[in-house]
Design a binder for these strands. Structure first.
Length: 522
DNA sequence: GCTGCCGGGAA
DNA sequence: TTCCCGGCAGC
């Protein structure tokens, strides 16, 4: 039974040669998609005929009889009609016949051979039956290993064809086409619900307002984070390139946290707990080549596309819906920015840069100033010529200098003169590193996350630039600084725990003084 | 609520 | 500088 199932499975998907449809005599290759029985008379071994539905290289389906097609798994030696191939193998012994089954034999044919073998064994009671059985077992197991027969280049090509067809069909699937909005909704809601598990998370002081930090690499979410494999894989190709172009990439080999988050926030269906719902602002970005205009309303962007790109002057009533194809919806996190800015301190302003773009998962694009811009109805004013979007202006790329996990770990301190009253927009413009040697970063914040819901056709410029804006310029209020510098609570045993209150005299001095334990340091 | 630890005050 | 404690914040 096992063997039979294997055989049946192996014939489907096998590559075969078939007569050229054009009649020029040159055989073409195809993959067996289905097998039909023309004659079901099992008793007549030679009388049974199978019709093979073969998927040709050009994607068409054709039916061939057994005689017309030949095994293709070995185009050098096994080429020839199925039948001859069969004969050849049977002449080499029972075991041989099974070896080729995966490549070219029809299930029925193989079954026939097995029956023949059984008969032989049955008639021949002598010890050979044992060895035959043994042999057979080996053969069967070897037949399981089909891969070697599928590794040829042509085989790969066929696989590609098949894969392409599958993808084509999938592309029309509602699942794949789920509205971007939903993605973002899930994202934002999860952010709202869980603000501490994400790659970039509000640190302990988030409640005090404006204190954000990038979690350390170890804390960051990693690839193991449950996420829809499909969406992740399918979208990676689109996003990775853009990252490479922009990413300052100073960071370590990997910064899964940011990437993960970004990626998910960008395109994945995965609900990513990072953002507060109310912090998300929906913007619409024109995807027209070299445009990239961002507007706050769908109507606005549609009108923009209709008038600017489609050259239509009539109003919405003359819209044919075509505009929909030329813009995408993006979500901006405005809330966190506001928090961060509100807490700006003139004393210790600092610049935070998001973790560098990691290789794989796409980082989200954080954008600061734009989020604060009033929903501009600036249909009339083009942000930037040459496809630069407002997003790209949000922060100077030069700020993309520092990558630290915590403020106190900042490697490249930069002093930033900024006033606490700065609005987001002004902050980005006024922020200029003036003294690179005399300042420390008090806190980091990825306040704004840009989440593009779709891949822009003009992504060559779009994502790259947008990504570079993953910069937050924020200063930390005294309180936030304090919190950052606060020593992480030790997890190990402390003098108090070890000796107890009754033996307080045995405590280390620090413990006695309610300072950080010096004896049992973590 | 317990505990670790920071900031700050008193000696 | 040493010692102590109020109070914050993580668990």
């Amino acid at each position: 039974m096992h063997t039979r199932r294997l055989v049946k499975r192996s014939i489907l998907g096998s590559r075969v040669y078939a007569p050229s449809p054009t009649g020029d005599g040159a055989p073409v290759t195809g993959v067996v998609q289905a097998v039909k029985q023309e004659n079901r008379d099992v008793s007549a071994v030679g009388a049974r005929r199978s019709v093979y539905t073969v998927l040709m290289q050009d994607g068409s389906l054709k039916e061939f009889s057994e005689d017309e097609i030949a095994a293709g798994f070995n185009h050098t030696a096994a080429k020839g009609p199925l039948k001859s191939s069969l004969k050849q193998s049977s002449s080499n012994g029972a075991s041989e016949s099974y070896k080729v089954e995966g490549g070219s034999l029809s299930p029925e044919t193989v079954e026939e051979h097995r029956m023949v073998d059984c008969k032989r064994i049955g008639r021949d009671p002598d010890t050979r039956s044992v060895s035959l059985l043994e042999q057979k077992r080996k053969v069967v197991s070897s037949s399981i290993d089909v891969p070697h027969a599928r590794r040829s280049e042509e085989e790969v090509d066929m696989d590609k064809v098949t894969a392409a067809m599958v993808l084509t069909s999938l592309s029309t699937s509602p699942l794949v086409r789920s509205p971007p909005v939903k993605v973002n909704e899930g994202l934002s809601s999860s952010w709202k619900d869980n603000g501490s598990t994400g790659p970039f998370t509000p640190s302990s002081n988030s409640s005090s307002g404006g204190y954000w930090s990038w979690s350390a690499p170890s804390d960051q979410s990693n690839p193991s984070t449950p996420s829809p494999p499909l969406s992740a894989d399918s979208f990676k190709p689109f996003r990775v390139p853009s990252l490479g172009g922009v990413g300052p990439g100073p960071a370590g080999p990997e910064d899964p946290s940011l990437d993960e988050q970004d990626g998910s926030s960008l395109l994945f269906d995965e609900p990513i707990p990072r953002k507060r719902k109310n912090s998300m602002k929906v913007m619409f970005k024109c995807l027209w080549k070299n445009c990239g205009k961002v507007l706050s309303t769908a109507a606005g962007i549609q009108r923009h596309i209709r008038t600017i790109h489609l050259g239509r002057n009539c109003d919405s009533d003359c819209s044919d819906g075509e505009e929909d194809f030329y813009y995408t919806e993006i979500k901006l996190n405005t809330d966190s920015v506001a928090d961060g800015l509100s807490s700006l301190s003139p004393v210790s302003p600092s610049v935070l840069s998001p973790p560098p773009p990691p290789p794989s998962p796409l980082p989200s694009i954080n954008q600061l100033p734009d989020s604060h811009r009033p929903p501009q109805s600036s249909d009339t004013k083009e942000p930037h010529a040459g496809g630069t979007t407002p997003l790209s202006r949000s922060a100077p790329s030069a700020l993309y200098l520092i990558h630290t996990d915590h403020a106190y770990q900042a490697t490249a301190p930069v002093s930033i003169p900024s006033s606490s009253s700065n609005s987001a927009g002004s902050a980005s413009t006024s922020f200029t590193p003036t003294n690179s040697s005399s300042f420390s970063i008090s806190w980091q914040s990825p306040p704004v996350t840009f989440t593009g819901s779709t891949v822009s056709p003009s992504k060559s410029q779009g994502f790259g630039e947008q990504r570079s804006q993953t910069i937050a310029v924020l200063s930390s209020p005294p309180r936030a600084t304090t919190a950052l510098s606060r020593k992480v609570r030790g997890e190990g045993k402390k003098c108090r725990k070890v000796y107890g209150m009754e033996n307080r005299d045995m405590w280390c001095t620090a413990c006695r003084w309610k300072k950080a334990c010096q004896r049992f340091t973590d």
